[in-house]
Design a binder for these strands. Structure first.
Length: 294
DNA sequence: CGCTATGCCTGAAAGC
DNA sequence: TGCTTTCAGGCATAGC
């Protein structure tokens, strides 16, 4: 489910009730998600204060006063919601979920000193929660090879070109590769390629000129990636099947999809006149317009 | 029943 | 032989 804009939306929702708050109790309602919780997971979280809640790629990182970091991933169907137990004071700036639902897939509950209960729900259990020492975070196998943050000012056409140079894989597949650029998934790759008018089937290496110089297409693609992601964050992400904001409300960006899940609909590019098509690449649906995306 | 699904790790296969 | 790149398979569940 969640790509960078959804994870960032979740981060912004959780920050008011987690940052500066102490984790009073951790309830693990099953032994594993995608992989087992570490044996010392509860021990290392309980009593620790969250000093910052950050995001790297599609990972949420809760930095603790103890020098540990809680590494969280939402997988395909994970979501967080914030509950306010009866009698607990409301945290300024926090938005609470109206009521609990789908309790069967509530796998982790964090009771925070802010009074909020942070509940992780994940029907498919492709999500992940680990705790690692902060000084080992960058070298951690899950993060070591992750590429640049697309919304970082340092991510530019030169960076993208360097990552794409020599690649024969389709552009779609290259952009899904988290080592090329971090945080894009199936939706936002399709959206960014349409905005940049680039074919998902084009060989990735063709965005790089002689000597590794980025082409105008690479410049356009970087611009499109940044714009699509920023707009999606502003809209609270995209809610299809699973994504909710932490207060339970839906994201709104799905109403603004240019191509994703719009097979057969007219292309929105002014004057194009094409129709959105669906193909399968690397086993996943790609939506694009064969008329204006070259 | 069969197909699809916002992710991504693993391992096999292919290419050099 | 070995390294790198690419892709299919699988994970677990729900909805249509």
């Amino acid at each position: 489910m969640p790509e960078l804009p959804e994870v960032e939306t979740v981060r912004r929702g959780l920050a008011p009730v987690m940052e500066g708050a102490t984790i009073r109790a951790v309830e693990l309602r099953r032994p594993d998600l995608r992989r087992p919780f570490p044996n010392d997971f509860r021990l290392r979280l309980e009593g620790a204060t969250v000093t910052a809640l950050r995001r790297r790629a599609k990972y949420l990182l809760a930095e603790l006063s103890t020098g540990d970091v809680v590494l969280m991933h939402l997988g395909m169907s994970g979501s967080f919601r914030i509950e306010r137990p009866a009698g607990a004071a409301a945290v300024p700036g926090a938005y609470y979920h109206a009521r609990s639902e789908d309790l069967a897939h509530d796998h982790v509950v964090l009771a925070m000193s802010s009074g909020a209960r942070v509940v992780f729900n994940d029907p498919r259990r492709f999500g992940l929660m680990l705790v690692v020492a902060a000084d080992e975070l960058d070298a951690h196998p899950l993060l070591r090879a992750v590429g640049p943050e697309p919304l970082d000012p340092g991510f530019d056409a030169a960076k993208l070109a360097a990552a794409l140079a020599g690649k024969a894989a389709p552009l779609k597949a290259a952009l899904l590769d988290q080592t090329v650029v971090a945080g894009l998934g199936n939706i936002y790759v399709c959206e960014a390629l349409h905005l940049a008018r680039l074919s998902p089937r084009r060989r990735a290496g063709t965005l790089v000129g002689r000597g590794g110089v980025p082409t105008p297409r690479a410049v356009a693609l970087v611009e499109a990636i940044k714009m699509v992601l920023a707009d999606a964050i502003t809209a609270g992400g995209s809610s299809l099947r699973d994504h909710r904001q932490t207060d339970g409300t839906l994201g709104l960006f799905q109403h603004r999809f240019r191509v994703y899940d719009r097979e057969g609909a007219p292309c929105v590019t002014p004057g194009c006149g094409g129709v959105v098509r669906r193909i399968v690449q690397s086993g996943r649906s790609t939506f694009f317009c064969t008329v204006c995306q070259k």
